[in-house]
Simulated assay, not measured.
Amino acid sequence: MEKAFTLAVVSEEKKVDYVSNFLKGKANYWWESARASEEEEVITWDRFKKIFLDKYFSSYMQTQMELKFFQLKQEGMNVREYEKKFTELARFVGDYVDTDEKRAKRFQQGLKPWLRRRLDAFELTTYAEVV
């Protein structure tokens, strides 16, 4: 869906509406019920993702993905491969990488030690700079 948002140029405020149109059958019934039980009138995209994952992605699986993220190290990967894996797993640990600075810091921590030490000298603060 994130790719579709980029392609279709969907604003942050319209993402939930956009996605909810694709829900069919039981998923649509679940969404109608979940939306009715939410206290906030406007449900953000981040909130939607959280309640969707809570429903369709078991807490055990989510914990496993979080562990994989926190154990992720560059090791035998090149930076591009490491960045791809980092991005795949980062979606399961939103609070730990919810700002550009946190994301950059965590990414740098997983780099090979010699590379991490070299980057330390530059005091980079954005994810793009670190990558």
Rank of each mutant, 00 (worst) to 15 (best):
R91Y: 02
E38K: 13
D54T: 03
Y127M: 03
V9L: 09
K112A: 13
V97W: 10
T126M: 03
D98E: 11
I43N: 04
E41H: 10
Q62V: 11
E32Y: 04
V93C: 00
M65E: 03
R80G: 10
G25Q: 08
S58I: 12
D120I: 01
E88K: 02
E32W: 08
E75R: 12
E88T: 06
Y60D: 14
S33E: 06
V97F: 06
K68D: 08
R116V: 01
T63F: 15
R80N: 13
F48V: 08
E101G: 05
G110K: 08
S59I: 04
K14G: 02
T44F: 08
W114A: 08
N21F: 14
Q74N: 13
M77Q: 02
G76I: 05
D100L: 01
K102N: 01
K24C: 11
K24E: 15
A4D: 02
T44N: 10
L124R: 05
Q71F: 15
N78G: 09
E39S: 07
E40K: 11
I51S: 09
R106F: 10
L7T: 12
W114R: 09
A104Y: 06
R47E: 14
V19A: 13
N21M: 14
G25S: 09
S11Y: 13
F5V: 01
R116L: 07
D120M: 09
T6E: 15
A104E: 01
V97E: 03
A27T: 03
Y29L: 07
P113M: 04
T6P: 15
R35F: 02
D95A: 08
V79D: 01
F86Q: 01
Y29K: 14
W30D: 07
M61Y: 13
P113R: 04
E12A: 13
K49P: 07
Y29V: 00
G110S: 07
T44W: 06
T6A: 15
Q74I: 11
Y127F: 10
R106C: 09
N78Y: 05
E39T: 03
T125P: 04
